[in-house]
Amino acid sequence: MSNEVLLQAQDVRQYFTVKKERGQKATLYAVDGVTLSIYKGETFGLVGESGCGKSTLGKTFLRLYPLTGGKIVFDGKDISRLRGKELKEFRCKSQMIFQDPSSCLNPRRKIEVILSEPFIIHGLYNTKEERRRRILELCDMVGLSSAYLERYPHEMSGGQKQRVGIARALALNPQLIICDEPVSALDVSIQAQVINLLEDLQKQLNLTYLFISHNLSVVKHCCQRIGVMYLGKIVELASAERLYQNAMHPYTQALISAIPVIDDGSERPIPQQIVLSGDLPSPTSPPVGCAFHTRCPHAMERCGKERPTLQEVEPGHFVSCFLYEQIP
């Protein structure tokens, strides 16, 4: 990990228009003002409950949607308004690994054809032998036997399919890979294999990961820095170590207290579990003020009126909560 920023997001907003009953339209605030930096070579974790916008944020970084507002700078270049040829060039630099290995491969194509796609699209390795050699190289990297190249996706197991997905993401030599819950659909025994594979590849190819997950143990294991998302906003951002030792935002505290602890009879006190009441508010009508105040055990009067901003409370540790607001 270096101090060079690979991807910088400034106040990124991604809204969608959704149809409600009786033809009414509503705005869905999927990502609402996210500012963060991802450094070269690091694994940045993004956690949060379902529907908080973490996948959308990942896809926004890949420019899959027209950006509603804000700015994304990738490797020193503003990519937030790229189009056509420039966007296609950017596609080589960032890729994605999907959650569901069974839907990320076209069921009607053999693995070899699926892995040839990136090269055909970008006009790389034009002869058949060159392409074949590169595909075998990719298989080797992700630990996939070349015998699978002749198979169809439905003839493979989830872990093998996920390896194909990783090989496809690596095909164009990207710098950034968005891992959208890459292991949550896999068996536990396979999860460890895939995570180790991702870590090895990161060292080998100097990759940067944005690791999206709702599994806190996995994130703790493989990420250097972690952002916690709630209703389209980052509520806390810190190094993995600090976040687990000293979670500040009430939401993060609740999340971390929910990690199961094994009672091994040692002296270590078992932390009190914080149980949040209620559901995630609808992202089409987020609460006024702090998005979390409807469920926050520490909510104050002010939280329902003003919206807190992300503030650095200790070096590298950002929290968006009035409890920690420093009075200047």
Partner: peptide, 26 residues
């Protein structure tokens, strides 16, 4: 809505290619 269509977009495939190669056969 399938991920392989999204994957194809992320790889930089044109809309025509996505329709013809990914969506139509399925």
């Amino acid at each position: 809505e399938n991920d392989y269509v999204t994957a194809s977009r992320i790889l930089g495939a044109s809309h025509l290619r996505i329709l013809y190669r990914e969506i139509l056969p399925n």
